[in-house]
Design a binder for these strands. Structure first.
Lengths: 133, 133
DNA sequence: CTAAACCTTGACGTCAGTGTCAAGGTCAAG
DNA sequence: CTTGACCTTGACACTGACGTCAAGGTTTAG
């Protein structure tokens, strides 16, 4: 099939598919007129690439995975891919931890601000008492 | 003080300080020779900018904060800044949720792979039984 | 024949925060 | 006067996954 059909069948833009091919994630034959010619398996491959991207892998990382990732139909993970997944998991957990730290700092800032504004309100009410009834 | 001193006193590169100034986060006078001339308060301002960046704000976001962020010495938050902090908090929590989803998908993938390899091992052992003793 | 739809490669734009080089002005010490 | 340290502006480099435009060849339906 040509790139347009692959694009519609996978929901990925033709531009992205060319990008994947240039990155070595996809292989395509060529028709006599130079058009890319993909086999049916390309649909699964593209979907697999999309899954990997959603898992947080970069194209470069995906490119380092050996052929075993595709020969197995995307369900079986060879040791290399397995380790890559574990590494990525650790990386994501680190990211989560960093974001949680950031969140906590923000919460602390907001809490301190709330306390300050409460004190300001008390001070204001005291002032009002003094000048009021 | 000139930019070099401000850089060493804040631990921020002179390049970054010029960038902050161009972004409108810092204001500096000029000496007769064209050199930037910062006041002592610039040290606190730069450190404040760094804190904001670490909280996840972009320079553009920081630039939208009104002067109240600096006049109070960085402890008092005006309503606008307060809302910005709340927005950023929500944004970060969304990011965390996305990462957790990604992590869970990764865990699921790894779990499935472990199960598959266990089954493969069982199948292998059965094969060995059949051909073995 | 022609317009529409599809394909090709190449290359710049995006977002953010700098690093880094270029080419030059300024200033203090020797 | 010279060297070296410090300052100036301007502009390109980098990361990543594409979007998008350019300029053109191919195919198909009418």
């Amino acid at each position: 099939m040509k790139i347009g059909e692959l694009a519609t069948r996978t929901g990925v833009s033709a531009r992205a598919i060319r990008h994947y091919e240039k990155a070595g994630l996809l292989s395509a034959g060529r028709l006599l007129n130079g058009y890319r010619d993909f086999g049916d398996e390309a649909v699964a491959e593209v979907k697999h690439v999309v899954r990997m991207i959603r898992l947080g892998f970069s194209l470069e990382e995906i490119a380092t995975f050996p052929a075993c990732m595709f020969t197995g139909g995307a369900a079986v993970l060879c040791p290399v891919a397995l380790q890559a997944h574990r590494d990525k998991l650790a990386e994501i957990e680190l990211l989560i931890a960093e974001l949680e730290e950031r969140r906590d700092r923000l919460l602390a800032t907001l809490k301190a601000a709330a306390q300050q504004s409460a004190e300001a309100a008390r001070a204001a009410s005291r002032t009002q008492e003094a000048t009021g009834p």
